[in-house]
Computed example of a mutant assay.
Amino acid sequence: MSSRIRTAALASAALLALSLTACASGGDAPSGSDAADDSAAAFPVTIEHAFGETTIDAEPERVVTWGWGSTEAALALDVVPVAMAQQAYGANEDGVLPWVAADLEDKGAETPVILTDDGETPPYEEIVEADPDVILAPYSGITEEQYDLLSEIAPTVAYPGEAWATPWKDVVSIVGEALGKSDEAETVLADLDGELADQAAAHPELEGKTVAAVWDVAGTFYVYRSTEPRVEFLTDLGLEVAPSVEELANGESTFFYTLSYEQVDQLDSDILVSYSDTQEEADAFLTSANTSVIPAVQNGAVAQVVGTEFIAAVSPPTALSLTWGLDDLVASLSEAAAVPSE
């Protein structure tokens, strides 16, 4: 997560293999020989991505997840990885996010091996030791060279477009396809879409309101574009991306850009969503001479997402975190939407 946040806010292998126990629990998913037959029948499966295509010949039994969201997608499909990426942002001291820890506890499953994440290079040696059948990294920052090295260990599924930019729903679908659980993935997404639809229906004040999502951190002002997964999440709730977001884009990236403080007064929207690690930072954002000129700040129409867990849960959401932070996010958006537009 730390590398994901930095990347979005800014965007061989060893030989020894050890045997680890693969965990999977049934939950509410289909069980028995019919479910096993259905999963097995899905293979071989070939998944296209930014670095070509990956063929998975048989149903994976030892799954390694890397990057963001694929761990939660696997768990939502009742597959417990043998190893998963360490998360620094919003996680506990062991590198486990709270909704992941809660799901593992509900399943009665042991915590998978935590793979060291230095923000730059996958820990190839640790991944080899996990002895995976597949490596899932559909929302990550791996390079083509890193993909090639990971593929020497096991079939590796990379992101379909840009690094750190895969829509959260696509992460669920890709993981479902890789695990032979596409039908189950559709069910997970349908349930989550239902949660979003319920929230949108309960808050008609959000419908059609324009929104801009920003993060002012360490003297740099970031604006997230319509292609950024956290923004797609906001539009799922009925909001529309403010025209000014794209009008001010400078080509720095397809999913975010930095904006000079001299230009922030041009970022016009009905609602401004601002992310801050602490309440102190959130308060400073509203009173800073640099940001107080933003129209939505002047109007008091700011929905603040405060705290590392909250930010991690909704930017972007995952198969498990969406419901974790949804109520608080919608409450903040609703309060901002209630402010009369000037």
Rank of each mutant, 00 (worst) to 15 (best):
M1R: 02
S3A: 14
R4E: 07
T7N: 09
L10W: 08
A11Y: 11
L18M: 08
S19G: 10
C23W: 01
C23G: 11
G26Y: 03
A29F: 04
P30T: 14
D34P: 00
D34K: 11
A36K: 11
A40R: 11
A42M: 06
A42Y: 04
A42S: 11
I47C: 01
H49A: 03
F51C: 13
E53G: 08
E53L: 05
T54Y: 10
T55M: 11
I56S: 01
I56L: 05
D57M: 12
E61V: 15
R62I: 06
W66T: 02
V79K: 10
V82R: 01
A85C: 13
A85F: 00
Q86K: 10
A88N: 08
G90Q: 05
N92F: 06
D94I: 08
G95L: 02
W99H: 02
V100Q: 04
D103Q: 15
I114Y: 05
P122I: 11
P122V: 08
E125M: 05
I127C: 07
E129Q: 14
L136I: 07
A137I: 03
E144W: 03
S151M: 04
I153H: 05
A154L: 02
T156Y: 07
Y159I: 12
G161D: 14
E162D: 14
E162V: 07
A163M: 10
W164Y: 14
W168I: 10
V175W: 00
V175I: 07
G180P: 02
G180L: 09
E184C: 00
A185T: 04
L189A: 06
L189K: 07
D191G: 05
L192F: 03
D193M: 04
G194W: 06
E195T: 08
D198I: 01
Q199G: 00
A200H: 00
A202P: 01
D216G: 04
T220R: 14
F221C: 07
V223P: 02
T227W: 04
E228K: 00
V231Q: 08
E232P: 01
F233R: 11
T235P: 13
G238M: 04
G238A: 09
E240C: 04
V241D: 02
V241L: 09
S244Y: 09
S244F: 09
E247G: 00
L248H: 12
N250E: 12
E252Y: 15
Y257M: 12
L259F: 10
S260W: 03
Q263A: 15
V264W: 03
Q266C: 06
D270H: 10
D270N: 13
I271A: 09
V273K: 03
Y275R: 05
D277I: 02
T278K: 15
E280Y: 09
L286K: 12
L286G: 03
S288E: 06
T291N: 13
I294V: 12
A296Y: 01
A296G: 07
N299Q: 12
G300D: 06
V302R: 00
V302N: 03
A303H: 08
V305Y: 04
E309S: 14
P316Q: 11
P317Y: 00
T318W: 10
L322H: 05
L322Q: 06
W324H: 11
L326A: 09
L329A: 09
A331F: 06
L333G: 00
S334W: 05
E335I: 06
V339H: 07
E342H: 00
